[in-house]
Nucleic acid binder design. Structure first.
Lengths: 221, 221
DNA sequence: GATACCATTTTGGTATACCAAATCGGTATC
DNA sequence: GATACCGATTTGGTATACCAAAATGGTATC
């Protein structure tokens, strides 16, 4: 694997894992020494992460993207458009096998599963569901949206009940897809995304002071 | 303007303007000498154009993205999802002023207008319509889709009648938006995108031999 | 005449040196 | 004590040198 991919992957993990906080400044020299690569692959990695929306330019210089509540709301609208389109395509095909795999993925989470795994599976559910549509652009869009939501979802304070509700909604979506009922699948998915957005934005809005106290930049809605 | 932006912009224009043909190989050294920049900004520009889908990697080395009929069909599905979502949002708001501006843009094209301008306005119509939604992600998605469609639309053999029909459909969409009729706007837009896709894929499929004779890589559906 | 093989060249990947501009610290002034 | 100013430092932008791997072309062999 090239140095560029190495730096890109590790830096992305540090940002998504909040090891580098939202709003934090990055210097190419720091990354260079941190990962033992020269500036050339570092710059390449930064350019890619910029297009992913994980970092941005602050005049000259680089900044980790802040948590932006208005942006989260806009992403929900975007997600709904592409995910509903994808699930409608999938429901119109015969994808029972693919649905089974996704359902097994959901069921692999239980009380003993670490929170990190729930987080990953919660995103992969949407990505894998989009993949079944067979449309590369819808898949890419969903993956991109999930990446941008990742940190916010990680910071969200989720209670057991909310997680259980989300999983029930996931199952309901799959059931509709399996039945080939595109309208019902779209309805369930729309409701799920709206609920997810509301919980997310409410939680982060309530927690914004403590997040800022941790040094995280949070942009209000 | 930095060298990187310079190279990126000029190279994009050369690719979209078909001065560099679909499927053609690019070497960093050639670009370097062609634009009088060193390899550092050249590499940065290439990385950005890669994320735009205008160039891709061919093992080691860079290749201008071929015209891909299957991809064009997938983009149509993607476009429909995001453009319909955007136009529904817009119709639900009061955007008469914005609609007027777009309509004036359409009306600025007449028999004396060069084909290049029709091409640009035909894409800007969809981009500006998406902008009215106020959603950055839907706008970005539409802009991205238009960029990827640009070369194919330029190669398309369009007769006067088809262009007139497209313009009439544009006006119908705007009328529905102005009336606040989201369902009608969505219907008109969906039909417009489907028709556009059919004409595009059919035209390029018919012309694929002559395109290949011009040295353009055309991937079948 | 076709093909396998080797030397040469070319290419992308990387490291690094240099520059101008922005930033930062400290000092002098009010 | 606040502030304006100036030099030292840091930073991103760029050019360039070097390397290993891949592509190329020519040659020898069958």
């Amino acid at each position: 694997m090239s140095q560029m991919q190495n730096v890109e992957r590790q830096l992305r993990e540090m940002i998504l894992g909040l090891e580098i906080g939202p709003g934090e400044r990055l210097t190419e020299r720091w990354i260079e020494s941190r990962f033992g690569a020269s500036r050339t692959p570092v710059r390449a990695a930064l350019l890619r992460l910029e297009t992913e929306g994980l970092i941005g330019r602050d005049g000259r210089g680089w900044t980790v993207a802040p948590i932006n509540l208005a942006e989260l709301a806009q992403i929900a609208v975007y997600r709904e458009a592409v995910e509903v389109a994808a699930v409608r395509l999938t429901a119109a095909q015969d994808h029972r096998g693919g649905v089974d795999v996704i359902e097994a993925m959901l069921d692999s989470c239980d009380a003993a599963t670490p929170r990190e795994e729930w987080h990953r599976v919660g995103m992969d559910f949407h990505i894998e569901l989009a993949r079944l549509s067979g449309n590369e652009f819808l898949l890419r869009a969903v993956r991109d949206a999930m990446t941008r939501l990742s940190r916010a979802r990680w910071l969200e304070v989720r209670d057991e009940a909310a997680l259980g509700r989300a999983w029930a909604e996931h199952h309901a979506i799959l059931a509709a897809v399996r039945a080939g009922d595109a309208d019902e699948a779209a309805r369930q998915l729309t409701a799920h995304i709206a609920g997810s957005r509301d919980r997310l934005v409410t939680s982060l809005h309530d927690e914004r002071r403590s997040l800022r106290a941790r040094g995280f930049a949070v942009v209000a809605a």
